[in-house]
Design a protein around this nucleic acid. Structure first.
Lengths: 208, 208
DNA sequence: TAGATTGTTAATCGATTAACAATC
DNA sequence: TAGATTGTTAATCGATTAACAATC
């Protein structure tokens, strides 16, 4: 199976499996079956079977399932968490700082190599070993790193301009935390991270 | 149209429309049509037509579209952004602090009424007018507020325990930022906010 | 009027779920 | 062996897209 066929929903589920598998491994479990995972993660069995088949390089054994170790390895390879992708982050407000401060990105194959802001009070301060750089230096720094990912944690007013600068500076993908629809060339990948959308679903379900 | 029928994807799109409508309003536009929104947000026209019909209390006018003002009002009513729902937040690390610090929640009908941590260095400090309270006081404070939403920004190790305490303390919905699947009673609404999943999609698309 | 937009009904598409034979 | 689990094929479900008559 090649991952070209992975659907968006499947991709979304994969990290959940990985977390859970790691937890099971820690508690000493050596083999895992689709029905077990389905029960523990509240998913449909057939769904889990198909997801596992997609990432697994070899078949599972009837009545036994799969080796957790092998499955974890396959999952990491599938998600390409072993290959580091570099990113620059623009906007060191509280959200941007929190992202820059997060120690766990390397587990997901992400490395933030430079962080920028245009606030004089922030420029020069350090977050997680990274110095906040003035926004003017974005192009100069990108010319060195060629980071494929740009993380946008600026205000909605600034987001479109920043997006355009990142694209010009060579970013091929934008992880957008600002609540605006970014207009960029077709070839550019935009992943919107909308807390508002997420909250809308929560609220809707809460109110029946 | 009643919002009982709103699909998950429709809910996800709604805040995007609202942001865009507000932006158009600011730039002086008075009427908007489905084809215009579809073009500007890179969506299918029929999709937009159905989404607007779902939230609109009255019909659009052929050749004219809808009044932006009325549509914004309808959208806010639909998303219930005018009704404040209270929340307690557990875990004032960098992500939790960023969420507590965010000034815009009231625009989405959310009000964080209390924030908790068990780190002595954080307890007593102030974030956005809220004092970080010791975790032991969670039940006592919840007995006063009865906040329906619990925001979980603790480590994955602590998340399940915190979830259970929040449920016992009367939360009906959990907004979970920890990378674990929470096991809670069926009646409890869980909205997972997984950066890892989001990043997985971005990375996958980036690598072709 | 002509034509863009509306709402709605039908067709398509894709993901989830169910069913089942094969396996250890 | 019996029975749980596997992979796969078929059925179902729901969302998106296309088609079209009605409207101003």
């Amino acid at each position: 199976m090649s991952k070209e066929n992975a659907s968006k929903n499947q991709l979304l589920r994969m990290p959940t499996y990985l977390y859970h598998l790691k937890m099971l491994k820690e508690s000493g479990v050596e083999y895992v079956t689709a029905p077990k995972l389905a029960r523990e993660l509240d998913l449909n069995v057939e769904l889990v079977k198909k997801d596992l088949a997609l990432v697994s390089l070899d078949q599972g054994k009837p009545r036994v399932g799969r080796s957790i170790d092998v499955l974890i390895t396959d999952m990491i390879a599938f998600l390409e968490y072993d290959q580091i992708t570099e990113a620059v982050l623009i906007g060191c407000g509280s959200l941007g700082s929190a992202l820059a401060d997060y120690q766990g990105w390397s587990n997901f194959g992400l490395k933030i190599v430079a962080i920028f802001d245009n606030d004089m009070k922030l420029i020069g301060t350090k977050i997680n070993n990274l110095t906040v750089l003035p926004l003017e230096r974005l192009e100069e720094i990108q010319a060195i790193y060629h980071a494929p990912i740009g993380i946008i944690t600026v205000s909605k007013q600034a987001a479109q301009i920043i997006a355009e600068r990142l694209v010009k500076a060579g970013c091929r993908a934008l992880w957008n935390f600002a609540p605006v629809h970014l207009r960029v060339p077709k070839r550019i990948i935009v992943q919107d991270e909308s807390m508002a959308s997420s909250l809308a679903i929560l609220n809707h379900r809460l109110r029946q």
